[in-house]
């Protein structure tokens, strides 16, 4: 793909990924076919900060996990009172990293 487009994409979307993954994403995007550019643009990535806010208020019911696609864990959290209230607190610290992970997983589906 065109280097300028890749730079632009990374500039706009770097907050959705872990910073140490950016070089990998850059390389993969450079290798990617031009025809996938539209798909790349329309990819729905979740903003870690938004998910953190959801986690603070609705994490007890597992809503944060449902949104990022961890449905099984969401159900587990919902049925166990947010993991006896402990898991929901732990998730306030883990959820941003996990959101970036799922974003990368969505992006890598496009690469291969």
């Amino acid at each position: 793909m065109d280097a300028q487009k890749v730079e632009m994409y990374l500039m706009m979307n770097s907050k959705y990924f872990e910073s140490h993954q950016i070089p990998f994403i850059h390389d993969q995007l450079m290798k990617m076919d031009e025809s996938k550019y539209l798909m790349l643009q329309s990819l729905e990535l979740k903003d870690p900060t938004t998910i953190l806010i959801v986690s603070l208020f609705g994490g007890h019911f597992g809503i944060d996990r449902f949104i990022i696609g961890d449905t099984g864990l969401g159900v587990a959290k919902l049925l166990t009172c947010g993991g006896l209230g402990i898991w929901s607190i732990v998730d306030w610290f883990l959820i941003m990293g996990r959101t970036r992970e799922t974003n990368l997983a969505k992006l890598t589906q496009l690469f291969y």
Binding site: H60, F61, L78, L79, T80, C81, G82, L84, G85, I86, S88, I89
Partner: peptide
Amino acid sequence: SLCLFRHVTGIPCPSC
């Protein structure tokens, strides 16, 4: 009760 929701709002949560 360790339920955060119940302690904060006074309303039980679905799994209380």
